[in-house]
Nucleic acid binder design. Structure first.
Length: 573
DNA sequence: GCCGTTTTCGGCCCGACTGTTTTCAGTCG
């Protein structure tokens, strides 16, 4: 069972207990445990099977450890089964409506028997909701609007989808003269692969004017709230944007607060409480409520004796402990990249296509790039005609003559067949500088078989990179069932890199995987999978993911100089 | 529920906005 499936049990448990009115701290404990399960990067099913003591993990005690074991071994959680009997099956849908929390959901169910969105809509249309205590005409209208909106609502946005809106809003706000400091915060600043909303923080001596300017942005669907210091809007594409204005002395604290993550913030506040201090979005305050930091983020971390923690690391995944011990990783930067190790040439690529890619690579300051023939057996069997591998090699040979000062590696994408053999023979692969092997179909194999399949492919001495190891597509397809830790160990042993596929809907491996697997000493490679010059820039999405995975330049082969890279490739032979 | 250099009990992050609450509850982030 996947970690997110296990975590879902605890989230559901927490939601139902909240509606029931249970102890809020127990509810929080379940939510914290769900977060640990989802973000720690451990394979909880494997941990249970191996008999690991789960209560050693943060936010997991004896009781929850037992529940996790129960879920993994029986596929069920008795406590949750019993709790579900007390409520209609779709009651949790009510919580997804803006303005309905646990208290109101309970009131709606107990007083009006509402247990689904359909019943909620009907009750709102019949004006039965406004009669309830704690509700009125306005809440009823808001609920009705929420139900209608819910149906067309997308959930989270890919980072790359939110990015143009973040830029447009930033530019819009920059135009307001009375705004001084300005930053996008939230999960966007942490470069999370998906963002639920955008958070923007600014300083201004004219907060009201700034709010007016904010809500004058073109493309607003709805102004949800508008106050003196904080406003919320929903764009026409349903992306929510929160805007916060503070004084200059509070900017660092506000930026820190709104960058999150929530878990990171809570951990920082706990550190403050231990010292008798208080941290909020206005600053750090000592026992006499004197502000002792807040202008800049740096001084806040320094005050606690910590190194500055980059936003990508702020997930309460050990970064605070590392910062205290001054052992934070020196995260790999865009400037460290020397090349792109996975471009996919379209099947109809000609000299002009290749020239444009190379010219763009030079503009990006690359010393090398790897151009791969998109010629996997699977790809070419679906009625497409693919040029022979020899043609690909010949085109690249000619390109090398036209372009000096940049190293062009001839790569090939090769499919790992169901039995772990590769789709091309050793002789066919031999002519290439770089062989990138990946699973393309039979994604539904049992974990053991899938792992064995990949391990076998890694034993092939021609293979240098394992492509998109988990095979997931964000919000569309879960990854293969795999023992990634065993695969990482084998890859490290064979000197094979694990790829970080930078396509924004892939980002495979993800941040948690990278963070866990780097501990096995395996190296990673980064590829844009671009087929045209415009797509080459998206390599940075993969780099952001690498940073979220605590990766230093040494662990990413794209930071090697051409000579060092060739040495690594030779090493393999 | 979890957690612990004030440990096995008694804490558990903090504040803005909305509505109609004249001092606060509910929701949200």
């Amino acid at each position: 069972m996947s970690n997110s499936e296990i975590a879902a049990f605890f989230k559901e448990l927490a939601d139902l207990l909240e509606i029931k009115g249970d102890n809020p701290f127990r509810i929080r404990a379940y939510r914290n445990a769900a977060r640990t399960i989802e973000t720690s990067g451990y394979d909880f099913t494997k941990l249970v099977q191996e008999g690991y003591d789960l209560s050693r993990l943060p936010d997991i005690g004896d009781r929850i450890a037992k529940k996790i074991a129960e879920i993994v071994t029986t596929g069920k959680l008795q406590k949750l089964e019993e709790l579900k009997k007390e409520f209609p099956p779709h009651i949790l849908d009510l919580l997804k409506i803006e303005g309905i929390g646990p208290k109101r959901a309970r009131a709606l169910y107990e007083k009006l028997g509402i247990g689904s969105l359909e019943e909620l809509r009907k009750a709102a249309e019949e004006h039965r909701i406004r009669e309830l205590p704690g509700f009125d005409v306005k809440t009823e209208e808001k609920i009705l609007k929420g139900v209608v909106l819910y149906k067309k609502e997308g959930k989270r946005f890919l980072y790359s989808q939110a990015e143009p809106f973040a830029r447009a809003l930033y530019d819009h706000l920059k135009k307001f003269p009375a705004i001084q400091r300005l930053s996008v915060a939230g999960s966007f600043r942490r470069r999370k692969e998906t963002v639920g909303d955008l958070d923007i923080v600014a300083t201004s001596e004219d907060p009201l004017g700034a709010m007016d300017h904010f809500t004058s942005f073109a493309g607003i669907g709805e102004v949800v709230s508008k106050g003196d210091t904080r406003s919320t809007i929903i764009l026409e594409n349903n992306l929510q944007v929160d805007f916060r204005v503070v004084s200059d002395a509070s900017f660092g604290a506000a930026l820190h607060y709104f960058t999150g993550s929530k878990a990171h913030n809570i951990a920082v506040r706990k550190m403050a409480v231990e010292k008798g201090w208080k941290v909020n979005e206005y600053g750090v305050f000592d026992e006499n409520l004197q502000r002792i930091a807040g202008t800049d983020e740096e001084e806040i971390y320094a005050l606690f004796g910590m190194e500055y923690i980059e936003p990508e690391l702020r997930e309460d995944r050990g970064e605070l402990e590392a910062a205290k011990a001054k052992r934070l990783p020196r995260l790999v930067r865009v400037e460290d990249l020397r090349g792109d190790l996975h471009l996919q040439l379209p099947v109809d690529a000609d000299a002009d296509t290749i020239d444009k890619l190379i010219q763009t690579a030079k503009k990006l300051g690359y010393r090398y790039l790897c151009l791969c023939a998109k010629t996997s057996k699977l790809f070419c069997s679906h009625g497409r005609s693919c040029p022979p591998l020899q043609d690909h090699l010949k085109m690249l040979e000619e390109a090398r003559k036209r372009h000096k000062g940049i190293h062009i590696f001839a790569g090939v994408d090769v499919e790992i067949l169901e039995d772990g053999n590769l789709a091309y023979s050793d002789e066919e692969l031999e002519a290439f500088d770089l062989v990138i092997a990946g699973v393309e179909e039979d994604l539904g194999l049992e974990k053991e078989a899938q792992t064995r399949r990949i391990l076998r492919a890694l034993e092939n001495p021609r293979v240098q990179i394992l492509a998109h190891p988990s095979c997931r597509i964000i919000a569309q397809r879960n990854g293969c069932s795999l023992d990634l830790e065993v695969i990482a160990q084998a890859a490290a042993h064979h000197g094979i890199c694990l790829e970080i596929d930078a396509r924004p809907e892939r980002l495979d491996l993800n941040d948690a995987h990278i963070k866990r697997l780097r501990e096995y000493g395996v190296r990673f490679s980064l590829g844009s999978l671009a087929s045209n010059p415009e797509e080459m820039d998206r390599i940075r999405y993969g780099l952001y993911q690498a940073r979220r995975g605590w990766l230093e330049a040494e662990s990413l082969v794209n930071t090697l100089d051409p000579k060092e890279l060739e040495a690594w490739l030779k090493e393999k032979e």
